[in-house]
Computed example of a mutant assay.
Amino acid sequence: MGYVKELRKLVGNRPLILPGAVVIILNEKNEILLQHRSDGGWGLPGGIMELGESMEETARREVQEETGLVVGELELMGIFSGEDYFLKVANGDELYSVTAVYATRDIKGELVIDGIESLDLQYFPLRELPKDLASGSRSYIEPYLSRLEDW
């Protein structure tokens, strides 16, 4: 997150356009992996792009940092952006996110809860998402529910 911190020193809380990626990870039971985030609620693993990264590299790095899993093949599901993706975070920082949503079943490793960004990691049935699923994550998953069930 060094890049964003450096930008914030220059622009303060003014809105930034920040690219990032999240990953819909499905297991063999067709359940989706969600992360109980330390900043509140359940969400998809993912985060903000660092300088020099591709979107795919961002997705893989963030998943590994937040879950301990190593991601193989990724399928791009969609890109989400626009005024519906404006955020004002607790410290007053404002941003417009541009988020690449990927899906995969190709994972290796064991789940590791880092205790920093992730308080818990659980698989949920696609049609039984938690009530406190972050609105952004819900908007990334719901357009693809039927497709993911058959995927």
Rank of each mutant, 00 (worst) to 15 (best):
E110L: 08
S97W: 07
G20S: 04
Y144D: 03
L26T: 00
G68P: 00
A134V: 11
S54Y: 03
R14E: 12
R37W: 12
D114P: 03
E94Q: 15
K131S: 06
E57Q: 12
E6K: 14
V112N: 01
E31P: 08
P125N: 09
D114Y: 03
E53Q: 15
P125G: 09
E117F: 09
D120H: 03
V11C: 11
R147E: 13
Q122Y: 03
L26H: 06
G47S: 11
D150V: 13
P143F: 05
Q35D: 06
Q122V: 08
L87N: 12
L133Q: 04
L51H: 10
E50M: 10
I24A: 04
G20P: 02
R147C: 07
A90P: 07
S146Q: 09
L16T: 12
S97D: 07
L119R: 15
T58Y: 02
S81M: 14
E31R: 06
V89Y: 13
E62S: 00
R138N: 04
D150R: 15
H36K: 13
E73Q: 13
S137P: 10
L119Q: 15
D106T: 04
I25P: 02
G72L: 04
V63A: 00
P15T: 02
G40H: 06
I79F: 09
V23E: 03
K88H: 05
L95R: 10
A59F: 00
L26G: 06
Q35M: 15
R105H: 05
E128H: 13
G43N: 06
E6M: 09
L69R: 05
E117D: 13
E94T: 05
I25R: 01
G72N: 06
I107T: 15
L33I: 10
A59R: 00
E73L: 10
P143W: 07
P130H: 04
E31D: 12
D39P: 00
E149N: 07
L121T: 05
G52S: 11
V112L: 01
Y96I: 10
V70E: 15
T104F: 01
V112C: 00
G115H: 02
L18F: 05
E149M: 13
D132N: 14
L87W: 13
A134W: 10
E142Q: 09
V63K: 02
P143S: 06
R138K: 14
R37A: 14
S38E: 04
E142C: 02
P45D: 03
V89N: 11
H36P: 02
D132K: 08
V98N: 06
W151A: 12
L33N: 07
A21L: 08
N30D: 14
E53W: 10
S81G: 04
E94R: 14
E75G: 01
R105P: 02
M77W: 03
L76T: 08
F124I: 13
I17C: 02
V22N: 12
N27Q: 09
